[in-house]
C-alpha cells in the first residue's frame, strides 16, 4: 500500500508501533455473515497479514480484494458500512470482540497483538441486518424527526447574528453536538430492542442519542421554542420512562458525550412539563403533525 508522494523508497509510513506487536503477522478475522434480511447467518474466518497501523477497515479491504477463507474456499467479499475512517462520520459501527464500536479506530495492534490472534466481527445487534456487517439504522434518524431536533429558524435570508453565548455554554452544546448517530449507545442499551417494523418506531424507545440531542436543542435560545413538543414526545411511549438506567450508553459512547447527564436532565424537564400541563393546561401548538417546525 505504498502510495506516498513521489517519495523513494516509498515509506509505508505507519504510526510507530506501540507494543510488542510485530508487523507482518497473521491475524484471523471471524466474521458473522448474512446474505440479506431473512437469510440464515453463518461464520467465515479470514487470515489477514497486518501492517503497522492496520485497523479493522484496512483488513476488511484486504479481505474484499481476495475473499478466501482460512479453509481455502473462495467466497463473496464481506459487506460493511464505512465513510470517513477517522471516527467522525459514525458509519462503520460494528460489534468487535463482543463490544460495539467504530471499526476504523479499532487498531489491530491493540486488539490482536500476537501471531494468529482472532478478532470477531459481528453486525450491530439492535438493527436489522442489510447484509453481513451492514445494518439499517434509519430508526435513529426517525427518532430525530419525531423529536424535531433542530433550531426552527425563520429562513435563510439575512437576519443578523444568532444569540450570544458564554464559552461555558458553548462547550456544553459542542460536546452534545458531537453525536454522530453511530448507534453505539442504543446497541448497548438493554431497553432498546430490535424493531424492524417502522410502523412501531413511533412507540418504541428513542434511545440515549435522541434524548441527548433533545437536550441540545432545548438548551438553545431559539431551539427552546420546540421544547414543549420534545418533552411531550419524551413523556409518552418510547420516551424517557423507557430508560432503565443501565448506564451502558455512556460507557460505549465514542465521543464521551454525557448521555446519562442528558437523560437525568430531560427526566427532570419532563416531570416539570407534566406538572405544568396539569396546572396550566393549554394545547401544545407544536404537537400537530404539520406544526411550524
Amino acid at each position: 500500500m505504498a502510495t506516498h508522494l513521489n517519495a523513494t523508497p516509498p515509506p509505508d509510513a505507519a504510526p510507530p508501533s506501540r507494543g510488542p506487536a510485530t508487523p507482518g503477522r497473521t491475524v484471523n478475522f471471524k466474521v458473522r455473515r448474512c446474505d440479506g434480511p431473512g437469510k440464515p447467518g453463518r461464520w467465515e474466518t479470514f487470515a489477514v497479514t497486518v501492517e503497522r497501523g492496520s485497523n479493522v477497515i484496512s483488513c476488511l479491504q484486504q479481505i474484499a480484494a481476495n475473499p478466501v477463507t482460512v479453509e481455502g474456499t473462495r467466497t463473496t467479499p464481506v459487506v460493511w458500512d464505512s465513510g470517513c475512517l477517522e471516527e467522525v462520520c459514525g458509519a462503520c459501527t460494528m460489534v468487535i470482540n463482543g463490544k460495539v464500536r467504530q471499526s476504523c479506530s479499532c487498531l489491530i495492534d491493540n486488539y490482536a497483538p500476537g501471531e494468529g490472534d482472532t478478532i470477531t466481527l459481528e453486525p450491530m445487534q439492535k438493527f436489522p441486518v442489510v447484509r453481513d456487517l451492514w445494518v439499517d439504522r434509519s430508526r435513529m434518524f426517525s427518532a430525530l424527526r419525531r423529536l424535531k431536533t433542530w433550531v426552527p429558524i425563520d429562513g435563510t435570508y439575512s437576519q443578523g447574528a444568532g444569540p450570544k453565548e458564554t464559552p461555558d455554554d458553548q462547550e456544553i452544546r459542542y460536546k452534545l453536538s458531537e453525536c454522530m448517530t453511530c448507534g453505539c449507545c442504543v446497541d448497548a442499551c438493554p431497553q432498546f430492542l430490535l424493531e424492524p417494523d417502522p410502523a412501531r418506531w413511533e412507540t418504541s424507545f428513542v434511545g440515549a442519542h435522541a434524548v441527548s440531542l433533545a437536550r441540545l436543542f432545548n438548551e438553545h435560545p431559539t431551539g427552546r421554542t420546540l421544547a414543549p413538543h420534545r418533552l411531550e414526545v419524551l413523556s409518552g411511549h418510547g420516551g424517557i420512562n423507557d430508560c432503565g438506567n443501565a448506564q451502558n450508553c455512556v460507557k460505549v459512547c465514542p465521543k464521551h458525550i454525557p448521555l446519562t447527564e442528558s437523560i437525568g436532565q430531560i427526566g427532570r424537564a419532563v416531570t416539570v412539563h407534566q406538572i405544568k400541563k396539569i396546572f396550566f393546561a393549554r394545547p401544545d401548538p407544536h404537537a400537530a403533525a404539520k406544526g411550524p417546525g
Binding site: 433550531v151 437576519q159 459542542y174 438553545h220
Partner: peptide
C-alpha cells in the same frame, strides 16, 4: 442562527 456551536 441555526445553532452551530461556534467557539466563543
Amino acid at each position: 442562527r441555526m445553532g452551530v456551536p461556534f467557539n466563543r
